[in-house]
Nucleic acid binder design. Structure first.
Lengths: 341, 341
DNA sequence: CTGAAAGCGCTAACAC
DNA sequence: GTGTTAGCGCTTTCAG
């Protein structure tokens, strides 16, 4: 393993000079030296030792991609298809910017801070925590970070977030459903904060606008734990059959929509003829089930690109124009909604 | 950020002592000092600066998880559901062992070597390269690594691989299909080396044993690029309809099996009544499509655990008993195969 | 049982 | 244009 000093000795120049040409601080080096050094560098197959870099600068070139290893997700958040689709895009953007991706499932925000300081991470992309966690994180470390899909009660100084227009997406989906003749829509989610809450509110607004009632009866909280959730579907189905009230089910995520849809179909319910089902996210799975799922699409690669880009902007100290980047969202109409005319 | 020296100064001991208690080299330190140091450490919230560690030792505590960013996969290997399911398990095992996961999509094996040396990576888990790449890697770096699903013409000194019994799995699936009355089975894969080749050979053996012919006609090479592959399915379908020869399609992976099955079903083919379809891997998708896909299951979490475990064994210089770890595989019978009696 | 000192590879302030 | 030097935080050898 060849070091800067080796190159310097070989060429009879100083380490500083070599370091300077490596970093393109080339205005104070003669053309000739530059050439010599560059040749020696590539001939010797020079690769920087990041230990040295890390120690001498405050810059590791590592971007931490950190997920919340919340018990709620049974330590399987990385198996969530939604998360998974974004990791891929994140890694690509990070790599193309010349950084390295450190993937970490954190148990708490303190963990995140720990990783950040021990590695002198250049920046962090963080998922799945709550507003107060992000605020704490900001106060604990000076490392720049951007949260993805964070929901904040207000603009928070020093925190950049990239999210999607959950409200608008759900609102549009609500309008779409109503246009299709649905008047009794049930919204299902595993919690009532953050994105899911916004999605609920979007639907509510759409219904209100069309003179339809949306009360807490139109919202079911379903279990986040897979095993309990699967146990819940039969209950849901029998309730639906009994009351015969709802014509459409709006799940807060595709993953749940698909699970439920499959359960229903397997038990003799015809989707969409007996009941319509929609989701949110447009994960890959939505196109491989039958009927194909009508849903609200978010552009994951774009989300990843925006997040990495925003982070790089802070790292490079460019001016930041937006604190809260909201990406648009679109309805994708497929086969899981019936027209009720 | 508190350093070892800070703790040492505060306590009036030397940095060496602090370092010693941190690393449990505690046999030459008095009980009392140990206690003092440990208290100061946790009170001061000491977190090691990995730059220092990296520089002074040859040990970064980083495990590189490296994929082959082959053009063949359109730079989307991380979107391959099969890969994705294993990354999750890998990260968990790495983290639980006290290491860090660096995720990297490499364009070539030289890239892999570069990352390994620049980060002084403790070990590498590598996917998707060819035998000669792995051999080159072994010769380029001294970093221990284990390959996943590598196929080797022979036992190669210094290379550990964890894979599954592709041959046996396909053989058993062949037997199963034959037992169900299928005599004309078409095998489809996007290449004819490595795992896919073994899977083909397994099927071939099963057919031979039952007195059935398996010629190159029973094997179709399908395009690896998604767009070409989708263009190929109509062709395949019309050929199948014309010849009316094959009663079962054995795809080398679930991903392709599901794609094709959906295409067929969307075009009026009834699976399994008109034709049976099976895959290999048992990815999540296999259970969410209808009919549920009958396939060969490999245990991804186990595979990940074995790979990390094997790697840690080399890193810690424990004796290694097996060069080539072959994990068992099992048929999971679902609804995509008809009984032809 | 404890400490002093050197060194890992790189960078940057400063001097020439 | 180029070089000297100190220092980043940690480990480790060796001496006491």
């Amino acid at each position: 393993m060849v070091r800067i000093k080796d190159i310097a000795d070989e060429l009879g120049v100083s380490a500083t000079t070599v370091s300077n040409v490596i970093h393109g601080r080339t205005n104070r080096v003669s053309k000739e030296t530059i050439k010599k050094v560059n040749e020696a560098l590539s001939k010797g197959n020079y690769v920087p030792n990041m230990g040295g870099v890390l120690l001498s600068q405050n810059n590791s070139k590592i971007i931490g991609v950190v997920l919340n290893n919340d018990m709620r997700y049974e330590n399987k958040i990385l198996q969530n298809p939604f998360i998974v689709e974004i990791i891929s895009a994140l890694e690509e953007n990070i790599r193309n910017a010349g950084f390295f991706t450190m993937l970490y499932n954190a148990n708490s925000i303190v963990d995140v801070a720990k990783i950040a300081t021990m590695w002198n991470v250049s920046g962090l992309i963080v998922f799945g925590f709550m507003e107060e966690d992000y605020v704490n994180l900001r106060d604990m470390i000076k490392t720049p970070f951007v949260s993805i899909d964070g929901t904040y009660s207000k603009d928070i100084n020093g925190i950049i977030n990239v999210g999607i227009d959950d409200f608008e997406g759900a609102y549009n989906m609500g309008k779409y459903l109503i246009r299709k003749g649905h008047k009794d829509i049930l919204f299902l989610s595993d919690n009532d904060d953050g994105c899911d809450n916004k999605r609920k509110l979007g639907l509510k607004k759409a219904m209100k606008e069309e003179g339809l009632k949306f009360t807490e009866n139109n919202h079911r909280l379903i279990p986040a734990m897979e095993i309990s959730r699967r146990a819940y579907y039969p209950e849901l189905l029998s309730e639906l059959r009994k009351s015969n009230k709802y014509t459409a089910l709006f799940f807060a995520s595709d993953a749940y929509a698909i699970e439920a849809m499959n359960y229903f179909m397997d038990n003799g319910v015809n989707v969409p003829n007996d009941i319509s089902i929609v989701g949110f996210d447009d994960i890959k799975h939505a196109t491989i089930v039958r009927p194909r799922l009508t849903t609200v699409r978010q552009n994951m690669p774009l989300k990843a690109a925006m997040a990495v880009n925003a982070l790089l902007n802070i790292i490079h100290k460019y001016k930041i124009s937006t604190r809260n980047i909201v990406l648009p969202v679109e309805i994708v109409e497929r086969d899981s909604v019936a027209s009720l005319e």
